[in-house]
Every structure is written in C-alpha cells, then in structure tokens.
C-alpha cells in the first residue's frame, strides 16, 4: 500500500507545469502587470528575479493562457547554438521550416519582420535569457526594433545578469516585472494551496503556523527551495510511515522532520 505521504511528496516536485501554478496575491499581481505590459507598444519586457522566484512558471502560465488568443511562442530551454536558435526564430516568424544544412540570413529576417509590421504582432517568451551570448542578445534587440516581434525575457537576478540587463536593454526595455521571494503568508498559502489542489486535506491541516515559520526560516521564502524542502520532508515522512505501519493514524509531520530535511539539504550545518 502506498504511503499517504507519497502523493504529498509528488506535489512538490519542482516543475513549471501550468497545473502547478499557484495563484498567490503577489504572483497574480505580477501576472496582471505582465498582461498589461503586453498590451502596450513595448519592444521588450524584462521579467527579473532571483532563481526560484517563479519566473519560468509565470512565463509558462502566460503562454498557456494566451496561446489561443495571440501569436505567442515560448522558448523554455535556451538554445546556445546561434544557428539553431535562429532556425527556431525563423520558423516562428515565417511559419516555415528551414533545411538543417542552411543558415538564416539575419538581415533578410530583419527585412521580413519590417514587412510584417502592423500585420502581425509576434510575442516570443525567452526563459533563462542569461544563457544567451551577447551577440545573440544584440540580434534579439535588432529584431525587437522592427516592432513586429515583442520579446519577454526572463533573467536571473545576479550581479552578472544585472550587467547584461544594463548593457543590452537599458535603452530598449520599457517595462520590468520584478519577482521576489514570497512572504511568510505567501509561503503558507503556497504550501496549503498546493496540497489542497491535490485534495491532500489531512496533511495540509497538519502543517501549522510554527511549521511554516520554520520552513520560511530555512528557505527565506524562495519557492524552489520550499519545493525542495517539502519534497524531502515528505520523503522522510514516507520512510517513517512505511517503517512504522502500526501507527498509521499518527501524524509524522513535525518540526523534527523539517529540521532533518534541512540538514539533508544543507540549510542546517551540523
């Protein structure tokens, strides 16, 4: 028989699936800001934040919601090979495939984009944009200057990425959507909503405010870290649940388990 903690564990597998999107006050505000920015005649929009603040899932959520309404395309995995990247861009813009042994003539592509200005408005969502080389970013800028292609770029907020943002987009990005770590209340809602979404009521009720405070202390409100921690917590709970089969009704979730998971993940240095 499968442990009751197994399904709880799987809830916290880190993913950007739309099913896993949790509408928190802060994330809803960011989403609305992004929607509003798309409607503006902007060339580039920067989604900016520390790793694990929900940039990828926000882009995916936006894509899933608008994919039948707008000419929107989501590049989840960065393509560091320039030739391959522009093959993908070419396909999105011209809706035609190029033979793999050919190379995109960039100036022709830019001319094509100028030609379609006013007829089409293409939105390209670029995740993990810090992975693209400065040359590729410069070409992205040139394409956005045609005003036919609007780029929404998700960037990690580190010193290095700050520099990229400054160098390439300072004069062109008209809107920045900044994502931050969640507050204590956000994390509480996030955990509960995630469990309740999968109908795991008993475990959701067992997670009290003192547990949330402890989780928040270790993860500092970072959603990815919270997922990692809770996945490990439920993995440990699952172990005890399987070991002590006689005490099925006993609640295993406790501060002890959270601390054990934190030791395992290095949040606590013993």
């Amino acid at each position: 028989m499968e442990s009751r903690y197994n399904s709880a564990k799987n809830v916290f597998i880190d993913s950007i699936e739309i099913d896993d999107y949790i509408a928190l006050d802060s994330s809803v505000a960011s989403y609305k800001q992004l929607l509003h920015s798309i409607e503006k005649p902007l060339k580039m929009i920067l989604v900016f934040g520390r790793p694990g603040t929900g940039k990828s899932i926000l882009l995916n959520y936006l894509y899933e919601n608008l994919k039948y309404q707008k000419d929107i395309h989501y590049f989840a995995t960065p393509t560091t090979n320039e030739k391959e990247f522009f093959h993908k861009i070419f396909k999105v813009i011209t809706k035609k495939d190029l033979p793999s042994n050919t190379r995109v003539n960039f100036s022709t592509l830019v001319d094509y984009c100028r030609d379609i200005h006013g007829k089409r408005e293409i939105i390209i969502l670029l995740d993990e944009a810090q992975m693209y080389s400065p040359e590729m970013m410069e070409r992205i800028r040139l394409l956005s200057d045609t005003r036919s292609v609007k780029f929404i770029i998700a960037l990690h907020k580190t010193d290095k990425e700050d520099l990229i943002a400054e160098e390439h987009f300072q004069s062109r990005i008209w809107e920045v959507v900044e994502l931050n770590n969640g507050t204590l209340e956000d994390i509480k809602n996030y955990i509960h909503k995630k469990l309740l979404k999968k109908n795991i009521f008993e475990i959701a009720n067992a997670i009290k405010n003192n547990h949330i405070s402890l989780i928040y202390k270790f993860t500092k409100g970072n959603y990815r870290e919270t997922n990692k921690l809770l996945f490990t917590v439920f993995e440990i709970c699952e172990y005890y649940d399987n070991r002590d089969k006689d005490s099925k009704n006993e609640n295993i979730f406790s501060k002890k388990i959270i601390e054990m998971a934190s030791i395992k993940l290095g949040f606590i240095n013993v």
Binding site: I236, Y239, Y240, K256, E259, M260, I263, K264, I268, V270
Partner: peptide, 13 residues
C-alpha cells in the same frame, strides 16, 4: 538516503 543516519545527525544538532 539513510534516514536513520540523518536522524542521528538531527539528534546531534
């Protein structure tokens, strides 16, 4: 992973 060893580490902590 070894949860028993982790528990010992937790006790030490």
């Amino acid at each position: 992973y070894d949860v028993e060893a982790l528990e010992k580490e937790w006790k030490r902590y």
